[in-house]
Design a protein around this nucleic acid. Structure first.
Lengths: 336, 336
DNA sequence: CTGTTAGCGCTTTCAC
DNA sequence: GTGAAAGCGCTAACAG
């Protein structure tokens, strides 16, 4: 029971023909006789032949594989996106290899290194909460590997991006809270190296301004997305003389952590303080008391778009200079 | 900016030495002069040399990659296990490629096919809820690819397995409920093609017997793990003239679905009907009203063990006949 | 210590 | 239509 190493050579021998003929037959080359093809396919199947991708890669210098680095696979937002990516990618005969950074720069780097050494054709990435520099991704560029950023895109860099219309969503969410009658609206934001954090903040600002509400610095907090950090910032908000009446959270997980922290401090979420968050994850469906609204970001669709953009780049003329593209997906505020 | 194709040939030319010398230097071969090595490494770094894995594979016929197929990556039980696997595997210089079956036989098959064609060295698998036959995995055997089953192991087949001591856990959980004073204990089990479902059932039976409680057929339900199926079975339990007082659930997700279904039918979970489940996932920490207890299965440790077993097989003499091994990890009932 | 050479499995000119 | 042969990047005898 050792590794079956059936090669086209075996097929050729069995049939008494040249290996080049077998190769062509297997590729459905037009100039090969129909009968020959049939015989080749029959023997290939019978022998359990599986082409050796290494040999093909060596020859063609193309792995037909794209790499994906996301912070957490278990977050539904990302896992839905991965499904979208996989569906598009595999329909085109490519494979996907998935890595998670767990929001650690070091793991992100390792993933990128491994993508380079395994010669993936392209990469889709959502940067870790620790990533403050574009640098690690520069390596991919050096090796000529096309890159599409997803959701968590780096700022101030001309790169391919697919992301939600977060500014608009934050604006709407804030307006929604104001219309509910709340004037003291806080924001529990993500780390400021993420452009999507800044966009939330801008949307929040824009809304407050348009409502003629004051911008209170103490109501603006950012967490590193961990439970500890989030609880700490939430407690700071609870200690303010004028507690916020409502909080816009970076995502559902931040909202859940914050709501837990409230409960531990004797504050009843969505009664004493109302929560709105981003992502609209299925997890909220399990809760007796979910955030009162959440921004649906259509992760699956975003994944599809990212994959489509990457494939477009891969299949464009490699020599042509490519100008970075930015795709923005509209969101929708879902009221629970 | 095209794919940099720096090869050892370039390094050899640059230095005016033979490519074999470069190859050996890069591998730290003992018989290469220290100075030569230094020069080779210097040039390699400067030229941004990355070894071509395809060429190595073609030569050595070893990808240093293991494949993992799990039902759902977003379930913490599996994602924790993957982290355990990754940590062990990457410490040994192997790579991991991850696939999810989404509990669909067809996706599972696709993943296995892809593992075969990409020539992974070994596979770790947790079978889908739809998989009733060992068959799809037989293909791996045909290609001499070692396989370790994880948690969801097929029944009646001599294969490598790493799993929790589910029978014991179900026994203890049932005893726990009985000690709480409940005599009408139901079980919302998983599909019967999963051995771990049968073990839960056996543990449950064993406990009831030891307690001299009757085994009531109407209290034994199995779901296919989807929300719909679980809700349906839960409603059947609610319609019984003698509703159960407590329910042992296949896992936390089944418990959450069942608890939702209770609420929708005016039954208060953990007040009217008490829940105990398997997995002890972090998700339960977000709930105001989690199951009263959950069986911690130590997914990370299970992942480590599975990876260790697979590596042991990979690194054993390939010719030696391997007898399947079964590793059983003890569980712990966590009371919330 | 280093160089020469064959060959891993496959594709692809270039012949016929 | 099919075959012969070169070569992708690398490793590992086999020579020195």
């Amino acid at each position: 029971m050792q590794k079956s190493q059936v090669t086209i050579k075996h097929i050729a021998q069995e049939l008494g023909i040249a290996i080049s003929t077998v190769s062509r037959a297997l590729q459905n080359h037009p100039r090969i006789g129909l009968k020959t093809k049939e015989r080749v396919f029959e023997v290939a199947k019978r022998l359990n032949y599986v082409p050796n991708p290494a040999a093909i890669l060596l020859k063609k210098n193309k792995t037909n594989t794209v790499g994906v680095v996301f912070p957490y696979l278990q977050e539904e937002f990302f896992s839905q996106a991965i499904t979208g990516i996989e569906d598009v990618i595999s329909a085109k005969g490519y494979n996907v290899v998935i890595s998670q950074s767990k929001d650690k720069l070091e793991r992100e780097n390792r993933a990128i290194k491994s993508f380079i050494s395994s010669r993936v054709d392209g990469v889709i990435a959502s940067i870790s909460a620790e990533t403050t520099q574009y640098y690690p991704f520069k390596e991919l560029e050096n090796h000529g590997i096309p890159l599409v950023f997803f959701d968590r895109v780096p700022k101030d860099v001309a790169v391919n991006k697919v992301r939600g219309n977060i500014l608009e969503a934050a604006f709407e969410a804030t307006i929604f809270l104001a219309k509910k009658g709340f004037s003291r609206i806080a924001i529990l934001n993500g780390p400021s190296n993420l452009e999507i954090s800044n966009e939330r903040l801008e949307g929040y600002w824009k809304a407050l301004k348009s409502l003629n509400l004051p911008i209170v610095q103490q109501y603006i907090k950012s967490t590193d997305l961990t439970k500890d950090s989030t609880s700490k910032k939430m407690e700071e908000l609870l200690l303010l003389p004028e507690k916020p009446q409502a909080i816009l959270c970076f995502n559902d997980y931040v909202a859940l952590f914050a709501m837990q922290s409230c409960r531990q401090n004797g504050v009843i979420p969505n009664t004493d303080i109302h929560f709105v968050s981003f992502a609209n994850l299925p997890i909220t469906a399990y809760l007796d008391n979910p955030p009162i609204a959440s921004v649906e970001q259509f992760a699956y669709k975003m994944g599809e778009q990212a994959a489509t953009l990457l494939l477009k780049i891969l299949e464009s003329n490699e020599e042509s200079e490519i100008i970075p593209e930015e795709i923005i997906i509209d969101t929708e505020l879902i009221i629970h």
